[in-house]
Design a protein around this nucleic acid. Structure first.
Lengths: 327, 327
DNA sequence: TTGAAAGCGCTAACAA
DNA sequence: TTGTTAGCGCTTTCAA
């Protein structure tokens, strides 16, 4: 692979001129430009990003931290980030943390090593103190999940309001005995969505039976199944369930189906996230849609601005209720 | 962020010595080493990957090309690649091509720009001629999908045999009228799986009705639904269906459910890939499992060897039939 | 055992 | 409009 020296030699100019041609910088005479371009073509030259980056002390790489790549919730967000980043000449390094601190440490070091220019974190169980420490020195934004205390910009939705709308929808279709399948309330979104649930129930004077609230260990399909099993085994079981994630809702749906009960006839169910699979179940899942693609685009733009040293504000986006067969 | 100069200065040694300490190279006196380590600690020094990479002309980055990040088929393969790569000090750049040549061109340039040391391609509709041209100059391996003509190492399964086993399973449980939902036969795996289907049918003296073979436009859920609709509308419809991907099978399942028919009572169905969601449907999906994680690990090891200049051979792995409720 | 210095490929300040 | 040159941060050769 040719380097800039060889191109300069072949074209009979200096390396500076080659660099100028490649970057359309300042003024290069038409004739010189042509000579250089021909040499570039002949040698099939491509500039080394490594050299350029070292000189400019930037890598044009973005770190995107997600807990798990197999969680479809992140797909569209990542698409949004990617489209935006590529458009601005950046590439993304997708980092799966498994919510594992060792894994996180490896990725955090990537930015300390200047291999990345910024971090978009979407991991709810990220090491907060480490993240805050890092955010003091490097450009970092949070997407979807964020930390209340930390002074790190984020883009998210109003989780309490979204949950409120979901539960209100169940109430509006006549449901009174409404259960909640929530995840671990160490997560902020889980606490917020619980508040939304409680607010809707309160507002319509409905009893909240403590037994109807189930907190899962994680966000997996099996957790949803297990949660629904517990609810079904109750002496007086709910006739509708709000699950804080589609995967949990799909697990719950599976358990109901396996028990020979009907959705929504016996039990109505509503999820959260509008992942692609929420439309593939039988019946299809009513859910709350987050503007994921948009969230991705916005967080990419936010991090760009941070990298450029600009001040960026946090943003709260709108959600949407998607009514389908399960309610 | 401190650089190697500052550390050297603080420790009262030369930059060469700091480098030696960091890389446990050659011999450094215990006392000198201690001084340096203390300076490293105090300054919280991390070497710049950019500087090191430029000097060593390597990036320790791997490109992984996939058509779509939202296709769960790739999740475990990527996990395998990632675990292996990180263990060897490499990071991966996950590149979603959307099977779009422009997008591909961007990523292909990353290796020409020395931003990546090698490519693992999993995109079945990748620009073959470009890939072959690139493979002449740079380390490239193919995973899962590969090109017959190209002289590029690959890791894959025996698709014909796997399809044969799937169809044979249907025959063994008494099915005679077996349909095939295949993808576009421009893909090698589609042609191979069709051959496996035909081989099993032939072997047991079963008629292959041309109408029972449906080729989809893509691998999406909707394609599966549409395909099943067509099969259901046939005057004489099959009583079992082999779909060459789980997503297509899940689409077919949905269409059958929506028509008020029973699986497997009225129509048995078998998929391919064993994606996580194949276990979440009602009924759960019988499918053919590829050793995805292993494929990922192996392809990562293969690309490492290629980068080191070693000769690497292609590998064909075993598949497995996973019998669940849908058959 | 350590240091001086060259050089990886590029960009940009300065000079001509 | 173009060339010369310093330097980004590191590793490694050679010499001491």
């Amino acid at each position: 692979m040719a380097n800039i020296q060889e191109v300069a030699q072949k074209a009979g100019v200096s390396v500076a001129t080659v660099s100028r041609v490649f970057n359309n910088r300042s003024t290069v005479a038409k004739k010189t430009r042509m000579k250089v371009e021909q040499a570039i073509d002949e040698l099939n030259y491509e500039p080394s990003v490594l050299g350029r980056n070292l000189r400019n002390s930037e890598s044009r790489l973005l770190l995107v931290l997600i807990p798990s790549i197999s969680n479809p919730f992140y797909s569209d967000i990542i698409n949004g980030i990617e489209d935006t980043a590529i458009g601005l000449g950046y590439n993304i390094l997708l980092c799966e943390t498994d919510s594992n601190p060792d894994r996180e440490a490896i990725y955090f070091n990537l930015i300390r090593n200047r291999l990345a220019d910024g971090i978009i974190s979407m991991d709810p169980s990220v090491n907060k103190s480490k993240l805050i420490e890092l955010a003091g020195q490097y450009p970092i934004v949070q997407c979807s999940e964020f930390d209340e205390g930390a002074n790190i910009s984020y883009v998210t939705i109003n989780n309490e309001l979204a949950a409120y709308h979901a539960v209100k929808h169940l109430i509006k279709i006549g449901q009174k005995k409404i259960g909640l399948i929530n995840s671990d309330e160490k997560f902020l979104y889980a606490r917020e969505r619980r508040r939304g649930y409680e607010k809707a129930m309160d507002e319509f004077g409905l009893m909240i039976e403590p037994d109807w609230i189930y907190n899962t260990a994680s966000l997996a399909f099996e957790d949803g199944k297990l949660a629904m099993r517990k609810l079904l085994d109750l002496p007086e079981r709910p006739t509708a369930v709000f699950a804080v994630s589609d995967i949990l809702a799909i697990g719950a749906l599976k358990e109901i189906n396996s028990s020979g009960l009907q959705v929504p006839g016996d039990i109505a169910i509503i999820g959260f996230d509008k992942i692609a699979f929420s439309n593939m179940t039988h019946p299809t899942l009513t859910t709350v849609s987050q503007p994921m693609y948009k969230m991705g685009c916005i967080s990419a733009n936010m991090i760009m601005n941070k990298i450029k040293g600009k001040q960026v504000d946090s943003i709260i986006l709108d959600h949407e209720l998607v009514i389908r067969e399960s309610t």
